[in-house]
Write a protein that binds this DNA or RNA. Structure first.
Lengths: 198, 198
DNA sequence: GTCTATACGGCGATAGAC
DNA sequence: GTCTATCGCCGTATAGAC
């Protein structure tokens, strides 16, 4: 499946996909409405027939992506698995999201801090909390269940996993390398067992 | 030592420190020369008595920081230590850089990709190569010396360490938590031995 | 659904007075 | 070393014709 396919159908969806690609590549602020219009072969004024503003575009892109992603996380959390297996599934799902929605992940990764300052994007803060709850609860549960080290710093480990997974969007390009599932597996190998020889 | 202290003395250094802070907080593009001037209590035109352009400012900030950082890396690589100890020292030095030069690290972290497109900042690409050489050689040496796992994916591990160390600038604030050396130690605990209970 | 034309503001940068 | 004043450009967004 190509990246970023679910941004709606028709002309609106097409324009959103183009915008998504440009936002991911150049950054939200650095991408002008004229850039987006040019990529679509129209003039900037015509964009406003489809969207209220540039902010509306990025809003819709991020919302669509996050709604799908967290639906998948919820499904994993509802499964009858141990914390180690759930953590593995969450991480695998994250790498698959990078695979399937690379542009949207990149936008979220790079523009989230900037966009959070606007009321309109307050849901980004909610989603951050939700993601934090997922990872922290899995880590804590894993420590209790004695599958993770008893001296694990849950807070630092959470941040460490969160950051190191999502920044992979900066270098992971499935078409020129490993599949998402293989990357996830190797990543898990490091996080779970470390790089030291036993 | 407070963050970002070595940006020169006198008025020029003061202005650079202010700019450094704003660039780190709001981003390079989102920070206007008027913002910087206002923070300094002067008008935007007056800035041009000290600097050619906004680009000159960020250039000087990044160069100063990187020159110091890589001097430290070079010193570590020249020491008579094994790969595991050198890796530990490189990582500890990186966390100390986040501690001592948080703003400069944030700027490098967030603006590097954007700035690299200008010839003026081609040294950023050189520095990336240099950093990659340091980590990759340590990892490869560690595998040969049988201190790291023989099946280690050196390329992925390099990216993983690079990314996860530097993104810590987004959340690590020494004044409200652990010292840099303690963070480095816990980080190393995860990377070297993983989170699984043995 | 797109174009023409344009408003309006903020941007980086400059020249010369003080 | 700073201020006054301003230039020229480009940003988002709008109104109305086609």
């Amino acid at each position: 499946m190509p990246a970023s396919t679910k941004l709606g159908t028709g002309r609106r969806g097409e324009l959103l996909t183009l915008a998504c690609h440009l936002f991911a590549e150049r950054g939200f602020q650095a991408t002008t409405v004229r850039d987006i219009a040019e990529a679509a072969g129209i003039l900037s004024g015509s964009l406003y027939h489809h969207f209220d503003s540039k902010e509306t575009m990025v809003d819709e892109i991020i919302r669509t992506f996050q709604d799908e992603l967290f639906t998948e996380y919820d499904a994993i959390m509802a499964m009858d698995l141990g914390p180690r297996e759930k953590l593995a599934a969450v991480i695998a799902t994250s790498f698959e999201a990078i695979h399937n929605h690379r542009d949207a992940v990149a936008i979220y990764q790079h523009e989230s801090k900037y966009l959070q300052q606007f009321e309109r994007f307050s849901y980004l803060i909610e989603r951050n909390k939700q993601y934090r709850d997922i990872l922290m609860s899995l880590l804590a549960e894993g420590v209790s269940a004695e599958v993770f080290r008893e001296d694990l710093d849950v807070e630092i480990t959470y941040r460490f996993i969160r950051d190191s997974v999502w920044v992979a969007v900066g270098w992971y390009h499935p078409e020129r390398g490993l599949a998402a599932s293989e990357i996830a597996e190797r990543y898990l190998g490091i996080v779970l067992d470390g790089i030291s020889r036993k």
